[in-house]
Design a binder for these strands. Structure first.
Length: 525
RNA sequence: CGCGGCGUGGAGCAGUGGUAGCUCGCCAGGCUCAUAACCUGGAGGUCGUAGGUUCAAAUCCUGCCGCCGCAACCA
């Protein structure tokens, strides 16, 4: 029976289109999903949009659109981007969907019935214009920044979730599951938060039309954070499909931004405990992408004009180039930077010069000297040219790094362990000369070089799915690419037939996988 | 003293006690199969700083300096 792996990314606010920072998270989660599938897990990869917020309703109003119609339109736009990036999600949830409303109401009722929700007065600064409470931080000179009117002191009833009661349980849970929060550097932060003051949270809002109604008191809607986290169990079938829920819950990994780790590490597990379900198994808080312009590193921001949309890059290059840049250049657990200049540099050196060129020279040599067929290789097991590390070491490091979401390092391992040694091997054995003096020997060398391409294709499968497929299907390897797993990088197959280049060639040459980028042609470099 | 993280050659990173490593960039040479790609060699670092522990510290401890996060609708 296949092991299951339930993976989620954070759901996004659809009040603007996705930018490269949001895309960064989805790509990272996607690599994990693809890797697990390749390793034989039955994967459920969930993504979605977080729609039950005042901001979304307001944005729709500004545009004169019906809120629900607006949400659906945005969900379409988001998914268009995710598809263009080859994000292999299995389900896309919108929190305005009926299934989510049903789940939320069932869940909050359960928690209420269990006695973890109580009614009390909330007092704070209230802006009449926004019809919402403002934190002191949000106010400017005691005035609402949007409406420029003084916020009034106001008190009203609301419902609180008794988060503070879960302090001991949360501590015990984190003690028992030190691997719960990843990367580990965030653990202290979370522990500190729980050890310190853990306040009960106001989980309802009043006077709002958009949102999910509190089932026992319809005057209230559920506060967006309480509702948002529940998307994970909605999709797993909570409240609608108990069998399905039993199959998939608890989630194996929530991939989220580092800014919301506390919600996922304190509030969320406590909510689960309150409702009598298991908390998720792991939370991974990834780093942020910043924009580098000149010497300055700035936040991605619409108002600063530093917002780069995925489509800007995709339309100029490819999903593969996009994925590679962020996975290689920005360490997933930590922060990274984007600049067009850096993008072009990484693209040229790693993709065009190293990987792409290796592929070109190997297929070219086989194409022009051997008519695309390496006679005499049938029944012959190739030997992967390696450097200082053995294949076993390379693959084991790769596994470890991918499983801990250290993608940048995993790609370094692949390049240093397979691609660089292959180019070195080519140089050392010089098949282009050897072919003139000892053709069968040259064939063997090329057989080994093709093996490096095969192994690279296998290990790239979760990272650059389309490219990996192109590489792999350029040769007559027996095993279908869809069935290939990491194990296939470890064991060189013995071909039944002579090795053959099946990629389309013109005059013995293949089309470059990654045409070099001229630096001058790159904007904002 | 609110808490936490970070500070390694021009840039980006790896490296948790024992000759400081990788990629990019730069310089020189080689090769010419290949997308002017590839390969070899070189220059460039007192590992933020001041102390301490140790036979031995980028790596452990302490002070200081600098940068960055952190309770709500912000990926």
């Amino acid at each position: 029976m296949a092991q299951r792996f339930f993976l989620t990314s954070a759901i996004d606010y659809p009040n603007s289109r996705p930018h490269i920072g949001t895309a960064f998270e989805k790509i990272g989660a996607d690599v994990q999903a693809r890797y697990r599938r390749m390793e034989g897990y039955e994967v459920f990869f969930l993504m979605g949009n977080d729609e039950n917020t005042v901001k979304v309703a307001r944005r729709a109003q500004e545009l004169g659109e019906d809120v629900l119609a607006y949400c659906n339109r945005m969900a379409g736009e988001f998914q268009e981007v995710w598809k263009a990036l080859d994000i292999s999600y299995d389900d896309f949830i919108q929190t305005s969907e009926v299934r989510h409303h049903d789940c939320c109401r069932a869940f909050i009722q359960k928690v209420y019935d269990a006695g973890h929700i109580y009614k009390a007065a909330y007092e704070g600064f209230y802006c009449e214009g926004c019809e919402a409470f403002k934190t002191e931080k949000e106010l400017e000179d005691g005035k609402c920044p949007v409406h420029k009117v003084p916020a009034m002191r106001r008190q009203e009833d609301c419902y609180y979730f008794a988060l503070s009661q879960f302090r001991e349980k949360l501590l015990a849970y984190h003690e028992a599951h030190p691997e719960f929060i990843q990367p580990e550097s965030r653990r202290n932060e979370v522990m500190q938060l729980i050890r310190g003051e853990l306040l009960d949270v106001n989980i309802t809002r009043s006077g709002q039309d958009w949102g999910i109604r509190v089932p026992w008191d319809e005057r209230f809607t559920i506060y967006v954070w309480f509702d948002a986290l529940l998307n994970y169990i909605t999709a797993a079938g909570y409240g609608t499909d108990p069998e399905r829920f039993a199959r998939w819950w608890p989630a194996d990994m929530h991939v989220i931004g580092k800014d919301i780790t506390r919600f996922h590490c304190a509030l969320w597990p406590a909510m689960c405990m309150a409702a009598g379900i298991e908390p998720p198994r792991r939370v991974f808080g990834h780093g942020f992408v910043y924009i580098k312009s000149g010497q300055e590193t700035v936040k991605i921001s619409k108002s600063l004009g530093t917002l780069v949309e995925p489509m800007d890059i995709l339309s100029k290059f490819s999903a593969e180039a996009f994925r590679y840049y962020f996975l290689r250049e920005c360490p997933f657990p930590g922060d990274g930077e984007f600049s067009w200049r850096r993008f072009a540099e990484v693209y040229n050196s790693d993709l065009a010069n190293n990987l792409g060129n290796l592929y070109s020279r190997v297929t070219g040599l086989v194409g022009r000297n051997f008519g695309s067929v390496l006679e005499g290789t049938a029944g012959l097991k190739p030997t992967l040219p390696v450097g200082e590390q053995s294949v076993q070491e390379v693959v084991s490091r790769y596994r470890q790094q991918v499983e801990s979401l250290h993608y940048s390092q995993a790609l370094t391992t692949l390049w240093q362990g397979v691609l660089v040694p292959a180019n070195q091997h080519a140089e050392k054995t010089a098949p282009w000369s050897l072919v003139k003096t000892d053709k069968p020997a040259a064939a063997l060398v090329l057989h080994d070089l093709v093996e490096a391409v095969r192994v690279a294709a296998v290990l790239l499968k979760p990272f650059l799915p389309k490219l990996a497929a192109t590489l792999y299907s350029s040769f007559n390897f027996a095993k279908p690419f869809a069935e290939v797993s990491t194990q296939d990088a470890l064991e060189s197959p013995t071909p039944q037939d002579d090795l053959r280049v099946t990629a389309e060639t013109v005059a013995g040459k293949v089309v470059p996988l990654f045409p070099r980028i001229e630096l001058d042609s790159v904007q904002g470099a």
